[in-house]
């Protein structure tokens, strides 16, 4: 594919920004560099967003959106907590069941979208209301908390004293999803559906079935984030997933995934997650208020979408116009009789 701004350039820019941020924060902000392990531990505070972002990226690659990720995260975590606290189930078994439930909730989103022909935006908005209400009803007046030390390892633990468990899981999942998207037929069909749904359809891709799987993946990752949050806070709440959605979308878009689908990769999303997370935590440690960091998140979302669209080689982006201009110049420059 001919791109004015190839994906590698976007990823490379993000990598440079991330390194610059880390260097700047470590040298300029007292308290940010708290030993190798101390600084790595900062990732515990934002990687749940990253788990959601990776699942969401797959949906956005198909040109869809999943607004119910926060609600699925809350509901799965609440169900897990109830299964173990009231049902007496082993916490790890409850967590596995919650992951399956998350995937089923996502799959239901896919059913609503493909079988009832509801726009993804509206479908997942509607299911997010439903899932949140169910979570609130289940959680009741005193949501469960206190899941024991071993379970806390998921959200707060380290391996070899300095490597956060969350970070290791995130790296593993990112590599897995990257292979899924770039190296498998399933992954290529996902990108193809996003790039041109009709073409994919005529090329023999069973689009509805594929979309259902994609939303199930997103639901699964959202549930995973919910479980990690439950471990991190050692508590569940029916509204604990609320804050995940907008930041996760920002991470995906910052990572270079086109909001219209068909463009982008998991490496970029991974970098987007790290940049946004490190930036927010660093600014908080530097003493900026939550108001400033929230405003900045909004600004980054705008700038990255605008940059992506303006530089895009599709449609009427400046990138596409510029490409056409360069191409037409080239043709003019070539003498006709050779």
């Amino acid at each position: 594919m001919n791109r004015f701004l190839p994906r590698h350039a976007w990823d490379r820019t993000l990598a440079i920004i991330l390194i610059a941020l880390l260097v700047a924060f470590c040298t300029l902000i007292p308290g940010f560099y708290a030993g190798f392990g101390g600084t790595l531990a900062i990732t515990d505070q934002f990687l749940p967003f990253g788990f959601v972002a990776i699942g969401l990226a797959v949906v956005i690659l198909t040109g869809g959106i999943d607004l119910s990720v926060g609600a699925i995260a809350s509901l799965s975590a609440v169900i897990m907590a109830i299964l173990t606290k009231s049902g007496g189930l082993d916490i790890w078994l409850a967590a596995v069941l919650a992951l399956i439930i998350g995937a089923i909730l996502g799959w239901l989103n896919g059913i609503v979208i493909t079988s009832l022909r509801v726009e993804p935006l509206i479908a997942t908005l509607a299911t997010s209301f439903i899932y949140t209400s169910v979570a609130t009803a289940l959680a009741g007046a005193s949501p469960p908390y206190g899941f024991g030390k071993p379970f806390g390892v998921l959200g707060n633990g380290t391996i070899a004293l300095v490597l956060p468990v969350q970070l290791l899981m995130f790296i593993g999942i990112a590599i897995g999803f990257s292979i899924l998207i770039t190296r498998t037929g399933f992954g290529r069909r996902i990108v193809m559906v996003g790039y041109n749904r009709d073409a994919a359809h005529y090329a023999g891709v069973a689009v509805p079935g594929l979309l259902r799987k994609v939303y199930a993946i997103s639901g699964f990752m959202a549930a995973f984030a919910g479980i990690v949050l439950a471990s991190y806070y050692d508590a569940v709440r029916p509204d604990m997933g609320n804050i995940l959605l907008l930041t996760a979308i920002t991470m995906v878009v910052l990572g270079g995934v086109s909001i219209f689908g068909g463009e982008g990769g998991i490496l970029g999303v991974t970098l987007g997650v790290l940049i946004l997370g490190v930036l927010r935590q660093g600014m908080l440690i530097a003493g900026f208020s939550d108001m400033v960091t929230t405003m900045l998140t909004g600004a980054i979302l705008l700038v990255s979408i605008a940059a992506k669209n303006l530089l895009s080689d599709r449609g009427f982006g400046y990138g596409a116009l510029l490409l056409r201009l360069i191409n037409s110049r080239k043709q003019e420059a070539t003498p006709p009789n050779t």
């Binding site: 308290g31 505070q45 806070y233 709440r237 908080l284 939550d290």
Partner: peptide, 28 residues
Amino acid sequence: AQGQVDIINSLIARRFNVITITSNNPTQ
């Protein structure tokens, strides 16, 4: 409460002596 946790973490990093808080919920 999550927003409060982020802020608590930053206050720990900045070595505050005392944190006073009215919490959004008792557990998180």
